Simulated assay, not measured.
Amino acid sequence: MMTAIAVSGPAESSWRDGKKYLWPLGLLVPMIPWIAWGLAAATGLGLAWWAGPILVFGIFPFFDWAIGKDSDNPPDSVLAFLEGQRYYRWCTYLYLPLQYAGLVTASWLWSSGRLDTLDAIGLAASVGTVGGIGINTAHELGHKKDDLERWLSKVALAQTLYGHFFIEHNRGHHVRVATPEDPASSRLGESFYRFWPRSVAGSFRSGWHLEKARLGRSNRKPWTLRNDVLNAWAMSVVVFGTLIGVFGVRIVPYLLIQAVFGFSLLEVVNYLEHYGLLRQKNGERYERCAPRHSWNSNNIASNVLLYHLQRHSDHHANPTRRYQALRHFDDAPELPSGYATMIVLAYVPPLWRRVMDPKVLAHFDGDVRLTNLQPRKREKLLARYGTEKA
């Protein structure tokens, strides 16, 4: 069912938000631990505990292909009205109680002795899927000006021990995006497995230094709960400490597995969002970030599950804009499929390079020197692709 939004212009008055009643489908994700438990109980198959990775790496890519794309944009005249609808906010708010209810349920199952080690690891991967996609919920909330939403963003990040993302993404990545200085922008010729440690370590250091510098401007030391990195990490300490206190140290390995799986899911999304794209320098300064500096996708299935994250160019142009109002740009480079499919490709570097390297080069009219090159492969890539274009 489509929902009409009444606005003043004759063309705009007929615009309908075709995804309005699809957004709650994203709440199926935090229900994955119960889905896994139910399937395991119904079928007796241990594979069911791995429902999270199966959905992300198998089922969601199929839906990307089967459902197709939607490039419809809301008219400018409805954007303010659309962003003011609280219905869309509750589609994100409700993710969090379901996320933590699933984590508590999993902790009880890990402590109960009902699961063998392999099944328990599968459940940890499924819980990590929820936490990883929960980082995207935190991303949506953390960009807003409302104090409650910013606090909820930190809550969502606590499960994956990634509270520094709240600072680094907003004040680091958005400033340095599509430049060699950004740890979260991947480079042409860089595999996901080389990008992962660079981004994880670099984002951690960046978040800490950004907060240390902010506090230093007020003559404060960084070792204070006024430090948004420390107070975000403190939430993780409270969450993990409470769970361990209630369910015992037996759950510690699985809490760590789900956290690493979760933030790794974020990092593979980081990897594909700006792969090989580079903002050119005007003198000593980089050009302003534009739609051409982010890979985009209009695949409906992934967009519904990720709150329009795939309309990434508009997000970088308007970081505080709410997900339901993000727009498609015709001049933005487009991925061959949605994020769910591209994540699978990123895990297989030869396949990723075969699909994406030609698209990066085509985006820069064949001039490899205009791309964000992996330094250790620079000479090899220059030799392979040539430097004949200006």
Results as ranks from 00 to 15, higher is better:
Ile59Thr: 13
Arg171Gly: 07
Leu45Met: 14
Arg205Trp: 11
Val304Leu: 13
Arg250Pro: 01
Lys20Glu: 10
Asp70Trp: 01
Leu382Ile: 13
Tyr385Thr: 07
Leu266Asp: 00
Ser153Cys: 13
Met235Gly: 07
Gln258Lys: 11
Arg187Val: 01
Pro350Ser: 14
Gln374Pro: 00
Asn73Asp: 15
Trp108Ala: 09
Gly18Tyr: 11
Thr387Phe: 03
Leu123Ile: 09
Asp330Ser: 13
Val260Ala: 13
Gly163Cys: 08
Thr3Ile: 06
Glu168Met: 06
Gly128Asn: 08
Trp208Lys: 01
Asp70Lys: 02
Val229Trp: 00
Arg220Pro: 06
His139Asp: 03
Asn136Pro: 08
Val155Tyr: 00
Arg226Phe: 07
Pro291His: 06
Asp330Pro: 07
Ala6His: 11
Leu255Tyr: 05
His293Thr: 00
Leu266Arg: 02
Ile54Tyr: 06
Trp108Lys: 04
His173Glu: 00
Gly38Glu: 08
Thr43Asp: 13
Val269Thr: 15
His209Lys: 15
Tyr93Leu: 10
Arg194Pro: 04
Ser185Phe: 02
Trp50Asp: 04
Val355Arg: 11
Gly18Asp: 13
Ile59Pro: 10
Pro74Gln: 07
Ser153Tyr: 08
Gln159Leu: 12
Ser191Phe: 09
Val155Met: 05
Leu28Val: 12
Arg369Tyr: 03
Glu284Leu: 05
Arg220Asn: 09
Gly52Cys: 07
Glu267Thr: 06
Leu109Gly: 04
Glu287Lys: 08
Thr341Pro: 04
Tyr339Pro: 02
Pro183Tyr: 05
Val229Phe: 01
Ser206Met: 14
Leu243Ile: 03
Ala138Asp: 10
Thr371Asp: 03
Glu83Asn: 04
Tyr271Ser: 00
Ala201Met: 12
Lys212Trp: 01
Val229Arg: 00
Thr105Tyr: 15
Pro253Ala: 12
Trp90Gly: 14
Met235Ile: 14
Gly52Gln: 06
Ser313Glu: 02
Lys221Thr: 14
Trp37Cys: 02
Thr137Glu: 02
Val155Ile: 10
Ser8Ala: 13
Leu278Trp: 02
Leu326Met: 15
Glu149Asn: 11
Thr341Gly: 07
Ser236Val: 04
Phe57Asp: 04
Arg89Pro: 08
Trp37Ala: 09
Gly216Thr: 03
Trp110Val: 02
His274Asp: 01
Glu287Phe: 03
Ala301Gly: 01
Gly46Ile: 05
Pro291Leu: 06
Glu12Thr: 14
Glu168Ile: 03
Asp147Tyr: 06
Trp15Val: 08
Ser297Cys: 07
Trp49His: 09
Val368Glu: 05
Val344Ile: 04
Tyr347Glu: 09
Thr160Cys: 13
Val268Arg: 00
Gly122His: 06
Val104Ala: 13
Met2Phe: 09
Asn282Tyr: 06
Ile300Ala: 11
Gly84Ser: 15
Trp23Val: 06
Asn219Gly: 12
Asn219Lys: 12
Pro358Ser: 15
Gly128Thr: 08
Asn136Phe: 10
Trp295Ala: 01
Ser236Gln: 05
His293Asp: 01
Cys91Lys: 00
Trp295Met: 01
Gly262Tyr: 02
Gly134Met: 07
Ser77Trp: 11
Ala232Phe: 09
Leu39Phe: 09
Ser111Gln: 13
Leu45Gly: 11
Pro375Asn: 12
